[in-house]
């Protein structure tokens, strides 16, 4: 159905997108090759800095022996658990604060104090409060990532237009029905922003808690590899953290695209 003019512009924009991806990938490739060359020329101490090929080899070794998946599964499990608890708590409390300005006024000093809190400092507290277990990780994650979710939800609820509230009044919806049918769907955008920020933070906090607190998962594997002077494994685990971060982010974005009605593109 498209006119030749349209298909041409489509092809043009596609080739432009391809060129962009090519440029971005070439930047990464150039950086990796330069790093490899530095290592080959003996400019770096290979006991302390591995070459990219060493890292790739260590990654494959760790993955094929299954160790990598065990560690990653532990970290991802703790991340999702903590994020899930923070999501429920943050959305519920955030919705209440969004609806009631009295509740918001009385909660704001506490929220302002805790949202600026450096969450990493909470690891030693969780250490003495719950001891060395996966519970430590979950406590730290919840304490850190509940705030963006709560604030996103509150902002989402407050941003609902007056017309929608009028509509609820005209339809004589009860308090519960109003929250379920009007408030939550309209606030979903803000909630999703909070959930996405919270997910990134949750992974960071899980790894942090494993590095200084509970000795397990990817975080502890990083500490272990560093202390046993295995830089190739160390970097392979760090790359794994990067991959997990990207994967979890993609998952949350996919979730939000399914839940939030996307504005239709104009043709």
């Amino acid at each position: 159905m498209s006119s030749p003019d349209q298909s041409l512009s489509l092809r043009l924009s596609m080739s432009r997108a391809l060129a962009r991806i090519g440029l971005r990938a070439s930047g990464v490739i150039v950086a990796l090759v330069a790093w490899q060359v530095v290592c080959e020329l003996g400019l770096a101490n290979l006991d302390l800095v591995p070459s990219p090929i060493d890292v790739a080899r260590a990654f494959v070794d760790l993955a094929s022996s299954g160790v990598l998946f065990e560690d990653a599964a532990h970290t991802v499990g703790a991340t999702l658990m903590g994020w899930g608890i923070a999501a429920v708590a943050g959305v519920v409390v955030g919705a209440v604060l969004g609806v009631s300005h009295v509740a918001r006024a009385y909660a704001s000093p506490a929220v302002d104090l805790f949202r600026t809190f450096p969450p990493i400092a909470f690891v030693p507290v969780a250490l003495v409060a719950v001891g060395l277990s996966v519970r430590l990780e979950i406590v730290v994650i919840v304490a850190g990532c509940v705030w963006p979710i709560l604030i996103g939800t509150t902002d989402g609820v407050r941003g609902i237009s007056a017309e929608k509230h009028d509509l609820a009044r005209v339809l004589r919806l009860g308090r519960l029905a109003r929250i379920r049918k009007i408030v939550l769907p309209a606030a979903l955008g803000g909630v999703m922003v909070g959930l996405r920020v919270g997910m990134g933070l949750a992974l960071v906090l899980a790894v942090t808690a494993e590095m200084i607190g509970n000795p397990s998962g990817i975080g502890y594997a990083i500490v272990r590899a560093g202390e046993s002077l295995h830089p190739d494994r160390l970097y392979a685990y760090i790359v794994t953290v990067g991959i997990l971060g990207v994967a979890l982010n993609v998952a949350v974005v996919a979730l939000s695209e399914r839940l939030v009605p996307q504005p239709r593109r104009r043709q």
Partner: peptide, 9 residues
């Protein structure tokens, strides 16, 4: 990359 992860290398 979380900043903690950068410390060991």
């Amino acid at each position: 990359l979380p900043v903690v992860v950068v410390i060991p290398p």
